[in-house]
């Protein structure tokens, strides 16, 4: 219960303690530098959506829902379906979030997550065309942040891919009169593989993964790297006014490779559970 400033002010004592611990490769919540907080994923939590996932990374909590609808293709990609990723940091997510249209941070968040899904070709959009140039399927992924405690990039990304990968929809076909019809058959989206996002923060000379909001409040720079199924980089974003040395970037890449593999196992496990059921 507290009156609120525009952003978190971290206590000097706590900041000093954080930096002291980091020099010993430890963190305030007893994690190692390269440890994620526990990740829990609930799939299919919204029956009315084509796909959905509630993801918790520590105290950060997000929920993603997929809606698949018939839409018009973009004029420059008449032979591709649409993918729209939208993110809202709801006012209930933290004392610092305000009602209203998404601010630049929320838009950056949505766009980075969107790029990972798009550039990894997770969804084969060319298979979502109903009438070339006229009608295609549009995949809307809406992600709501319910509780913000740092690393919204990864939590949002995991919810997005888990909800897409487990989406189900009726098979659409064109009848003899050229009308779009739905069959009773329920099919998944055409999925190639999943991209995994790994976000790191630099505080002083130290890189850590999965920063909490407190760590984000004192971090100098942030870097998100997204790796596809083959271990190739498919999206990335450096954030905050601070810089990274070239060596830090290379180190970040090596960290991302290792962490992406671990997290891919966790998420795939949850996806497979859903597919089998």
């Amino acid at each position: 219960m507290s009156a609120v400033k525009k952003s978190i002010v971290v206590e000097q004592l706590r900041k000093a303690q954080m930096i002291e611990l980091l020099s010993k490769e430890k963190r305030l919540d007893n994690r190692g530098l390269m440890d994620f907080r526990p990740i829990t994923i609930g799939i299919g939590v919204i029956e009315k959506a084509n796909g959905s996932a509630r993801v918790q990374v520590g105290n950060t909590q997000v929920i993603a829902g997929v809606k698949i609808e018939i839409g018009d293709p973009f004029p420059d990609t008449p032979d591709k379906g649409l993918l729209v990723v939208n993110t809202e940091v709801l006012p209930l997510a933290s004392a610092y979030a305000e009602p209203g249209p998404p601010d630049e941070d929320a838009i950056e968040l949505a766009r980075v997550v969107d790029r990972g899904v798009r550039e990894s070709h997770m969804i084969d959009l060319s298979k979502l065309v109903l009438i070339p140039g006229k009608k295609v399927l549009a995949v809307f992924v809406d992600v709501n942040v319910l509780n913000a405690d740092g690393n919204l990039f990864d939590a949002t990304s995991y919810a997005t891919i888990a909800s897409i990968a487990t989406s189900k929809m009726p098979r659409y076909y064109i009848n003899e009169n050229g009308q779009i019809k739905q069959s009773d058959e329920i099919i998944p989206l055409p999925i190639n593989g999943i991209p995994i996002s790994v976000t790191m923060a630099r505080i002083g000379d130290t890189l850590i993964v999965d920063p909490t909001s407190e760590e984000e409040a004192v971090m100098d720079a942030r870097i998100t790297l997204v790796l596809d199924e083959d271990g190739n980089l498919c999206a990335g974003q450096k954030g905050q006014p601070g810089t990274l040395t070239f060596d830090q970037v290379k180190k970040a890449m090596n960290i991302a490779k290792v962490k992406a593999k671990e997290i891919r196992e966790i998420i795939k496990g949850e996806i497979m559970k859903d597919v089998r059921s």
Partner: peptide
């Protein structure tokens, strides 16, 4: 919800609603 001063979640039929209270502030 950890960040809120008070919160709740309700399911009533297919309704699923999460509520957060912030304040007094």
């Amino acid at each position: 919800l950890k960040n809120a001063d008070g919160s709740s979640y309700i399911e009533m039929g297919k309704n699923k609603i999460v509520v957060a209270v912030y304040g007094p502030k």
